[in-house]
């Protein structure tokens, strides 16, 4: 795995545990441990996405653009990495 793939994998992992936690929170909306876990991984995901987009361009069309061109189409799509 190259660095880009590693970053993507980390983001994917964060997405997954966030989704799992969201499903848990749907039925336990006041569970402090789950809320803390969610907040921590959301921050982690934000940092990873920022890191990815600053190097490789947008991860989604809503993502930040590195500048110069519209990276969503000029760079490989995330699923092509």
């Amino acid at each position: 795995m190259n660095e880009r793939e590693i970053l993507l994998r980390k983001i994917q992992t964060c997405n997954f545990v966030l989704q799992e936690t969201a499903l848990y929170l749907d039925s336990h909306p006041y569970c402090r441990q789950a809320l803390r876990y969610y907040a921590r991984h959301r921050r982690m995901r934000e940092e990873l996405v920022e890191q990815y987009e600053s190097k490789y361009g947008q991860l989604t069309v809503y993502g930040g653009n590195a500048a110069g061109s519209w990276h969503w189409v000029t760079e490989p799509f995330p699923w092509e990495v």
Partner: peptide, 11 residues
């Protein structure tokens, strides 16, 4: 985290 993804569940 990584183990959660490969198992398909966090729990």
């Amino acid at each position: 985290e990584e183990e959660a993804l490969t198992n398909g569940t966090l729990f």
